[in-house]
Amino acid sequence: MLLTLLVVVTIAIVRMRNLFGVIVLAGVYSFLMASVLIVYDAVDVAMTEAAVGAGVSTVLLLAALHLTKTMEYPQPRPAAIPLLVAVGVGAALVWATYDLPAFGLAETPINQHVVPYYLQNSLKETMVGNLVAAILADYRGFDTLGETTVVFTAGIGVLLLLKGRIPTRAGSRTPPRDGGTA
C-alpha cells in the first residue's frame, strides 16, 4: 500500500514541471519512504531518511532553486533509449536476485565470515553495547572516517557553489500557479 503511494509520488515527481512542487513532492516521498522503513522495523534508517530527505535536502534544493528558474522546460524529445536501458538493467537486477540465498540464513558466507567473531568478542574488545555501533565506529573506524571525509568535502563543495553567486534581487519570486502534474 505504502509502496504504491511511493510509485505514484515518484511518477508525479518526474512529470511535474513546477520545481517548487517537485521539492514538496520530494519531501513527501521522503516521509513515505521513512514510513515504509518503519514498517520494516528499521527505525534508525528511517530516521536518517527523514533527516536527510525531508530536512537537509529540502533546504539544499531550495537554495539551488534560488539560482535558477522555477519552471522546468519540457523535454524536447522522448528519451526512449535511456528508458529501455534503465528498464533492462532493472529487469536484469531483479533476475539476479533469484540466485541470492534466502534472506537471513545462518549458513550463507556473509554470516559465516567475521560475524561470529564480532558477536563473540565485540563487547570485550570495544566496550560498546550496541554491536552495529561497535562495528561501524571501531572495527571499521578508518572506513567510517573516509566516508565522513567524503561527505564533508561534498558539503564544502556544495556550499562554495551556492555561495559563489551574488544573489539577484531583481523581481520578487512569487510562485506561479502550477497547472496540474502533467
Binding site: F31, A50, A51, A54, T58, L65
Partner: peptide
Amino acid sequence: TYGVLNLIGTLAILKFV
C-alpha cells in the same frame, strides 16, 4: 525529531516562497 524536521522543511519552503 520527525516533528522538528517537518517544521524545518515547511518553514524553509514558505520562507523561500
